[in-house]
Simulated scan of single mutants.
Amino acid sequence: MWETGRHRGRHVQRQRTTRPWPLVLGLVLVLVAVGAIWLPRALAWRPTVIAAVPYWDLERGLVSVAQHGSFLDEVTPWWYGLAPDGSIVSDLPGGADAENTALIRAGGGGMRLVPTVASTNKGVWAPHVVHDILQDTQRMNAHTDALVSLAVSHGFAGLQIDYEDLEAGDRDLFTSFVTILAARMHERDKVLYVTVHPKTTDAGYDARNMAQDYAALGRTADRLVIMAYDWHWQASEPGPIAPASWVEEVVRYTLSQVPADRVVLGLGLYGYDWVGARGEPVVWRQVEDLVARTGATPAWDEASASPHLEYTLDGAVHEVWYEDARSFDIKLALAEKYGLAGVELWRLGDEDPGTWTVIRDRAT
């Protein structure tokens, strides 16, 4: 629009400029509103959620993967062990055909497969096999070749090694092995995760803790998976398997050694049913069945943030400590609080269905 204006005694023609401020202000308000919605979501904690599927409960584990795959990023099939000579073997019954079928089902929802190779032989822990490998450079190189070949030949995204109960004297050799293996895996665009025993100091509780140098392993492995469970275990007196306060201590120590973006918190979805000082593993569904059969009343232990119950069967008093959705949520909140890279669920198969609601609400 044109208007006439006076300037130093002369009439001049000038263009009226529409002031842009209302438009700019409106745009800013829109961006602020969009940011208020989008930014918290963009900055929200989104951990990698990994689920272990053990060979001894394969069908129920695979059913859980199929039902809840939308909440999972990765699956770790747990059925590879070691022969006495250090070669890799599968403990899954049925041979290669059964294994291929199981792998297809495990990754059917688009999840990455990062299988675990454990220091077991025919289902029994065999730490001496790893010890012998570490002591012999030729055997260690052959074992490294076998691991890389397994990952490449099957098209896995990588591997997780779970070499437990090592000797304290194996510490430097184990670090050297992981360093070499990680480099070899990375050359083939594969990831390497290392499972470690939980501890709150470098020395930890025994030799197996000392054998694992968190700081050194965390510099080379893509993820350090902390087994934050079995505070009470199968051969201990009854008690909580993962007291929340202890889990937090483990997390804090781990983060003093390893960056948070390399730490995965292993969370248990199981428990033990003790008679005296001997416990039998149970999952949540089995506990629910016990409650229905015996009329036992679950209780909540505030000190450990864990559920438990007692019942009597055939004259024997049983004490059960286990994990449910409530206790899982408390520990998942710790992973969120410290900004960890992810969580690994040990293990799938008749876990509390509420676990998936917790994951949906807190981690996705």
Rank of each mutant, 00 (worst) to 15 (best):
residue 222 D to A: 04
residue 145 D to S: 10
residue 82 L to K: 08
residue 282 V to S: 07
residue 147 L to K: 10
residue 297 T to C: 00
residue 54 P to N: 03
residue 261 D to I: 05
residue 87 S to Q: 10
residue 93 P to V: 00
residue 254 T to L: 01
residue 364 T to P: 08
residue 171 R to K: 14
residue 137 T to F: 03
residue 147 L to P: 08
residue 8 R to N: 14
residue 122 K to G: 05
residue 266 G to F: 05
residue 34 V to S: 02
residue 223 R to Q: 02
residue 234 Q to Y: 04
residue 73 D to I: 04
residue 312 T to Q: 13
residue 169 G to M: 06
residue 259 P to Y: 10
residue 38 W to C: 05
residue 84 P to T: 01
residue 157 A to D: 14
residue 268 G to I: 02
residue 63 V to M: 03
residue 225 V to I: 12
residue 266 G to R: 04
residue 311 Y to C: 06
residue 67 Q to Y: 01
residue 242 A to M: 11
residue 159 L to Q: 06
residue 263 V to H: 07
residue 175 T to H: 03
residue 8 R to V: 09
residue 361 D to R: 12
residue 335 A to S: 12
residue 156 F to M: 03
residue 257 Q to W: 01
residue 186 H to K: 11
residue 214 Y to E: 05
residue 147 L to I: 08
residue 104 I to D: 13
residue 20 P to I: 06
residue 110 G to F: 10
residue 280 E to Y: 11
residue 285 R to L: 11
residue 170 D to L: 10
residue 142 A to C: 00
residue 317 V to G: 04
residue 98 A to H: 01
residue 5 G to E: 13
residue 29 L to M: 14
residue 88 I to L: 12
residue 132 D to A: 14
residue 207 A to S: 12
residue 4 T to V: 13
residue 237 E to Q: 13
residue 95 G to W: 09
residue 317 V to A: 14
residue 198 P to T: 07
residue 75 V to L: 00
residue 318 H to M: 10
residue 199 K to Y: 06
residue 281 P to E: 12
residue 92 L to F: 04
residue 58 L to Y: 07
residue 30 V to Q: 00
residue 282 V to L: 12
residue 140 M to R: 15
residue 77 P to E: 08
residue 318 H to N: 10
residue 35 G to D: 11
residue 190 K to H: 07
residue 240 P to D: 07
residue 299 A to E: 15
residue 154 H to N: 15
residue 234 Q to R: 14
residue 66 A to H: 11
residue 146 A to H: 09
residue 182 A to Q: 04
residue 156 F to S: 08
residue 81 G to D: 03
residue 351 E to C: 05
residue 159 L to H: 02
residue 161 I to W: 00
residue 81 G to C: 04
residue 42 A to L: 14
residue 269 L to T: 15
residue 164 E to D: 06
residue 191 V to P: 00
residue 10 R to S: 07
residue 144 T to V: 15
residue 239 G to S: 00
residue 295 G to Y: 09
residue 237 E to N: 06
residue 273 D to Q: 11
residue 159 L to D: 05
residue 173 L to P: 04
residue 297 T to R: 15
residue 247 V to T: 14
residue 21 W to G: 07
residue 34 V to W: 12
residue 241 I to D: 11
residue 235 A to C: 02
residue 178 V to T: 02
residue 128 H to D: 15
residue 144 T to N: 10
residue 190 K to L: 11
residue 59 E to V: 09
residue 28 V to E: 07
residue 117 V to T: 06
residue 328 F to K: 05
residue 334 L to W: 00
residue 187 E to G: 03
residue 125 W to D: 07
residue 194 V to E: 08
residue 361 D to M: 03
residue 92 L to E: 00
residue 328 F to C: 02
residue 287 V to M: 11
residue 329 D to H: 09
residue 358 V to D: 00
residue 73 D to E: 07
residue 98 A to M: 00
residue 279 G to A: 06
residue 163 Y to K: 06
residue 321 W to R: 03
residue 126 A to Y: 08
residue 215 A to E: 12
residue 288 E to S: 14
residue 257 Q to K: 15
residue 351 E to A: 15
residue 62 L to E: 04
residue 19 R to G: 11
residue 131 H to S: 15
residue 152 V to R: 13
residue 294 T to P: 05
residue 225 V to G: 02
residue 191 V to Y: 01
residue 52 A to C: 01
residue 181 L to W: 00
residue 355 T to K: 01
residue 266 G to Y: 07
residue 30 V to E: 00
residue 44 A to D: 14
residue 244 A to C: 01
residue 45 W to S: 02
residue 246 W to Q: 09
residue 264 V to T: 14
residue 253 Y to M: 00
residue 324 D to S: 09
residue 123 G to W: 03
